[in-house]
Design a protein around this nucleic acid. Sequence first.
DNA 1: GCATTAACCACAG
DNA 2: CTGTGGTTAATGC
Length: 219
Amino acid sequence: MCGKRSSAAEHLDSDELEQLSCSCTEVVFSKGDIIFKQNALSSNIIYIKDGLVNVHITGPEKEHILKIAKGPTYLGIPTTLGDKINHYSATALTKAKVCFIDINTFKYFIATNSDFAFEIMVDLCKNELYNFRCCVNHLQKQSSGRIADALLFFANDIFKNDKFTLPLNRIEFGDLTGCSRENVSRILMNFNSEGLININGKKIELLKTDVLNMISQKG
DNA sequence: GCATTAACCACAG
DNA sequence: CTGTGGTTAATGC
């Protein structure tokens, strides 16, 4: 039985949980491992129990990081139910425990348990709202605002700490924020010399989150 | 015009 | 892989 259940799975009864654990395969991925790949066939619902995952897509020009997902969370419901092939890839950024849930079992729960289905819908809705926000931010904020956003995101949502080690290199951080790698370097160094952050390679400490918030909002 | 922003290129640790 | 400097193009006073 799964130790880390989703809020949706809280609505399953013991028979259903039994059924879920029977149709669920747990895999442990190491840092850098590909969990699923864009353009490949997908036939499982992915549930991250634990770990950080990079969700990225190859666009017409270059690679773009859609989001950094932290377990416990579902991943790839849109890419599994929305089409036969994956529209994006997922790569482990840390060691990650992942469950592959059989799609037919998942569909069966959706069909027979409305509380479960509702929780899944809420999850998908929150995701869509988040993506809408990301979309305007990327289009309307300038580079320093987007980078401040990303720093605050890692501190507040991922690590719950103002001091953390960035799990990305500068190129990937650029792919996440929509900046060139050179610009990422420069803006980070600027923040550093202005005393907003303390940076040592990938180790970052946010010193003035109030100013970073200002920069994030002003664009 | 002049300043700002940001991408691209090249080169050095 | 990173940081830096020069160049260039677009945009806004």
